[in-house]
Computed example of a mutant assay.
Amino acid sequence: ELAKNLGCRAILLQDDTASLRPVSEGGSAACDGLEDYCALATKDWDKVAEFLFAGERKAEVRRTTKETDIYVSLNLDGNGHCDIATGLGFFDHMLEQIGKHGGMDLTIRVKGDLEVDEHHTIEDTALALGECLYQALGSKRGIERYGYALPMDDCLCQVCLDFGGRPWLVWDAEFKREKIGEMPTEMFLHFFKSLSDAARMNLNVKAEGQNEHHKIEGIFKALARALKMAVKRDIYHFELPSSKGVL
């Protein structure tokens, strides 16, 4: 309340901002309307120090064309809160894996020409999300830079990445089904290519297994973990992770 009255923002010494949400979303009536004034919610003093020393890593991107209207908001140092609606249920489910398992707050709102097909919605979402990642990383000082393999039932999925500034995609994953949910399997490669281009990162994806749903979900979860690993920041070694001095 003091921050609101002063016209500034506050650090809330709680695990999250649950109490600050509107009453309709389970928040406290006494704190209703204060969420916008909370810059950070944590009981971890290392996170407080990192925030004060190195600043926020948030970005918003609006991409509007004749084919799509996309809004993406990203907080690299969030708590995995997601609000995603692309018009494609399975695509929403996959994008949620990035936020949830990457520990990032992620909002994606898409109005696409689904009456034509799914192509533009998926491709343009990847471009907007990649640009958001690029902007949120900022100078990249102190980040780990590199990122993960994980099993999912019958599948083994590996996603390795490098935020080195040079986009590249290696894709080694085959799908036998034409679609999973409403999402054409041919668009998986296209999504990751567009994402790597816009985020200016190397991306190496490999997956093996029998169940197509598990395979692609494992890839998205591995991507999320790779991102979480790569964007981790060390304020005590706050320098560019590059012998060239530039990323």
Rank of each mutant, 00 (worst) to 15 (best):
L76Q: 08
G142Y: 00
D32V: 05
R166T: 00
H93G: 04
D105Q: 11
R177P: 04
C132I: 06
H120F: 05
L2H: 12
L227R: 05
W45C: 08
G245C: 00
S243I: 03
H119T: 04
N211L: 07
T64H: 09
G78W: 09
Y148E: 13
F163E: 04
A18R: 10
D16H: 06
M94L: 13
F220V: 11
K58P: 04
Q158P: 02
C160S: 13
D77N: 15
L52Y: 09
G27D: 07
C31G: 04
M201R: 01
V246C: 00
V159D: 08
L161C: 05
L2C: 07
L195K: 09
L129S: 09
I70A: 14
L169T: 09
H190L: 04
A149C: 07
Y236W: 06
E123D: 12
R62I: 09
C31E: 14
Q158R: 14
A10E: 10
T125W: 13
M94A: 03
D197S: 02
V23G: 02
H101A: 00
K215N: 08
D69F: 02
G103M: 03
R145L: 05
A128L: 15
G130H: 02
R141S: 01
G80F: 08
I98W: 06
D153H: 07
K193H: 05
D105W: 11
Y134H: 15
F163M: 06
E144L: 00
A3L: 07
A226L: 12
M104Y: 12
G99S: 06
V246S: 03
A3H: 10
L223C: 06
K228H: 14
G164R: 03
L20W: 13
E118W: 10
G80Q: 02
E1L: 12
P167T: 02
E50P: 04
H237N: 03
L88I: 09
F91V: 08
T17W: 14
Q135K: 15
G147P: 12
A128D: 11
K179D: 00
F51V: 10
D117T: 01
F192H: 12
A224F: 08
P241I: 01
E144N: 13
K179I: 01
M152G: 09
R109L: 07
Q14C: 11
D36L: 04
A136C: 13
